[in-house]
Computed example of a mutant assay.
Amino acid sequence: MRFGFKTSQQNTTWADMLAVWREADDIEIFESGWNFDHFYPIFSDSTGPCLEGWITLTALAQATRRLRMGTLVTGIHYRHPAVLANMVSTLDIVSDGRLELGIGAGWNEEESGAYGLELGSVRDRSDRFEEACEVLVGLLSQETTTFQGKFYELAEARNEPKGPQRPHPPICIGGSGEKRTLRTTARFAQHWNFVGGTPEEFARKRDVLHAHCADIGRDPREITLSSHVRLGEDGAFGPVVDQIAGLAAEGLDLAIVYLPTPHTPKILAPLAEALAPLA
């Protein structure tokens, strides 16, 4: 079992979040750090403070030396995929090849509506997401990309310079939609993130993903399987360890521990000690 951690940029300070990442960078059991891509806090008071995800991640790349990193996940409708591809390549360079590209179809109606960003129907989100994946892969791996779809059109578009990871940074798709999201994951992703839940729920989604892989002749072992595992505000490690053990029995590769706010680096060493028997 491998381990990562996640800090959300809501209801926290830059100094506290930075301290967590710097501490984690020195604790070997944590292979990756993640943030989220929202403009409003989620699952709490949405009027509170929330730092932007990609700017934050770029700063964290300069403050760390070892951790792999990514947003978990970027709603694709927040940025045109051509703009996002340029951001990805640049941050892959800035981080010395430590970036993972976390993307999803988008879901947050409140912030989308407030900013005038069209979220669309569930079908539109899935169609747009699939197009965006094609655009991103093209721009991140090819000299030029020409694409004509319902949502995006590109004409011999370039993205230079590209990052050190080839053919492109690993793509992590977050979501559990069985008909579309997991099918798109089978086509494009090197990493699938389960938002979190019981081992039984994870196993069902895993089997659906593997069936989509079989349909297109892809080896499912090429796709890392991860899950959020939430550490409660009480800081109790027992439930986290038990949940990870259950998910591991169903084939989980990477447990990403979602840290509570307010962030504190003091929690990381005892958390690492609690996770060590599962490694």
Rank of each mutant, 00 (worst) to 15 (best):
D124H: 10
K205S: 07
N35W: 07
G163P: 10
S141L: 09
F194P: 00
T145H: 13
V122Q: 14
I244P: 00
G4N: 08
P49L: 12
H38W: 10
R230S: 11
A132S: 14
R158W: 07
L136F: 06
G238D: 15
G106R: 02
F5Y: 00
Q10P: 10
I93T: 14
L275E: 01
V20A: 04
F5Q: 00
D127L: 13
G70N: 04
R123K: 13
S44R: 14
A59P: 04
A248K: 06
Q148M: 08
T74Y: 05
E23L: 03
G197C: 05
F129I: 01
R158Q: 14
D45P: 09
T71G: 05
R180G: 04
M17P: 04
A19T: 04
T261R: 05
M87V: 14
T146R: 15
A114K: 11
R221F: 02
D16C: 03
V20C: 12
E178N: 14
G197F: 06
E118T: 10
F237S: 05
L268Q: 05
R68L: 05
R183I: 10
I223C: 01
L259G: 02
G97E: 11
R218Q: 08
C172L: 15
A19F: 07
S227R: 06
G174L: 00
D92M: 11
E156H: 14
G138R: 00
D234Q: 04
G197N: 05
A61N: 05
A15E: 07
S126T: 12
V94S: 07
F36L: 10
I173E: 11
Y152K: 12
L67G: 01
A19W: 07
G163M: 09
E110Q: 08
R180N: 14
F5M: 03
I29R: 09
T198N: 12
D16E: 07
D92K: 05
F39I: 13
V94H: 05
A189F: 09
Y40D: 15
W54P: 01
M87H: 08
L247Y: 00
V137G: 05
A61M: 07
S46E: 12
S176V: 14
R2D: 08
E111I: 00
D96M: 08
D207W: 02
R65L: 03
R166Y: 09
Y115S: 12
G217D: 06
R66I: 09
V94I: 15
A15N: 03
Y40P: 07
P161R: 12
F237M: 10
T144P: 04
I267S: 02
C133I: 01
S126L: 09
N11R: 13
T71S: 11
